[in-house]
Design a protein around this nucleic acid. Structure first.
Lengths: 211, 211
DNA sequence: CCTTGAATTGAACGAGCGTTCGTTTATCTT
DNA sequence: AAGATAAACGAACGCTCGTTCAATTCAAGG
């Protein structure tokens, strides 16, 4: 046997990526073999090399597109710098949760498998991650300077918020009793508290949008 | 050659554990081979099997003792349930940071390599983790009922806090510009904010201890 | 000092690894 | 219908994996 009936390159590549995402998220990059991956998409191991030059390239492409998707979606949805910092922060929080909840496997990969990247691949991905983090830090800093947010140390707080929000994906399951909207509301309240916002804002803080 | 001059079982075992912790934290369980590990402690690969029956047992012992150390230290340091919830929460927060900061590699392992455990080993470790999390949730719940803390959903908030605090170990380096005490202060302020505590507590909340 | 047991070795096992290669089959182009 | 190209195969390569085992050397106890 050789070429299969109805086979099409783009479809096969997508199938490989999906299977790789699922398998690596579940077992880890090093633990997943090319033969395992090939079995999952009903191919011989050799066929994968038509689409990815190496195993490392599979991981890299998964991580890279995960980060690019994140940044693209965020850049489309973020509020302009002219808007009040509390609103921008809420937009960030809700966006982050909405974007990540249905992508738990990609999130997992992005956290766990950075160390499986070659050094040069690592710095490329890390740069993307840092730009996202810096965006949040800038919002916090702006709010601090305007007096609408009260934040101990913007960079540290930014990391704390992201860690907290991202940790969500490790336990949240769509099949559970909690709706995404409920989760979003809870976490936004936590973030608001962390940054000195409360339900009855003092000292001229903009009213939190509870959309 | 066989037995080495000055060799002693206990010392060798400790050396293996230390090297395994460092190597697995850096490269991942699956990526570290027995020969690599043996090299790091200047032994032949076969010698490791005098101390650990399998590779899996090394990981399990590392994770188990990490969790047991955590729980033992916490049980020794936590405040009794009679004390005000805000104080108990602050004790938890500061303990968690103090305990984890110098153990970043163990923390990393406990998060990343759970999936490398066999199912039965996994449930054993997971039970320990859950008991720690439940302890925090109980504090939040108590504070909520007494009205000294304002928490959206105790279980969710407990997970959020732990994720936030534990994320600290991924970026904090003792060689950096920030002292452990500064970090502790910042994070406690964040946790206090998340739970409705502020510098000027309202509605009868106990005054946060800023020791 | 001699024996016993702890500590470690080197060699080997079968299995599986990522990757390459020449070949075969299906689809597309003309 | 024929030739070109895209898609997949099975077999193999050299290596490394976790683990076992008989043999060897060192440290202690009587």
């Amino acid at each position: 046997m050789a070429r299969k009936a109805g086979s099409h390159g783009e479809r096969t590549e997508a199938a490989i990526r999906n299977a790789a995402l699922r398998l690596i998220a579940r077992h880890g990059y090093e633990a997943v073999s090319m033969r395992q991956l090939a079995d999952a998409v009903d191919l011989g191991a050799a066929a994968i090399y038509r689409y990815f030059p190496t195993k490392q390239a599979i991981l890299m492409r998964l991580l890279e597109s995960h980060m690019r998707d994140l940044l693209t979606a965020w850049h489309a949805e973020r509020l302009p710098a002219a808007r009040p910092a509390p609103q921008r922060l809420e937009a960030f929080t809700r966006f982050h949760i909405r974007h990540h909840l249905p992508r738990s496997e990609g999130v997992f990969l992005s956290y766990m498998e950075l160390r499986s990247l070659t050094p040069e691949n690592f710095v490329a991905i890390e740069a993307l991650r840092q730009s996202y983090e810096a965006d949040l830090a800038e919002i916090l800093e702006a709010g601090q300077q305007q007096g609408s947010l009260s934040v101990p140390a913007p960079q540290v707080t930014a990391r704390a918020i992201i860690a907290m929000l991202t940790g969500l994906t490790t336990w949240y399951r769509a099949t559970g009793p909690m709706s995404p909207e409920e989760v979003e509301a809870i976490y936004w309240r936590l973030v608001a508290g962390m940054t000195g916002l409360s339900d009855r804002p003092a000292k001229g803080a903009a009213r939190p949008v509870t959309a």
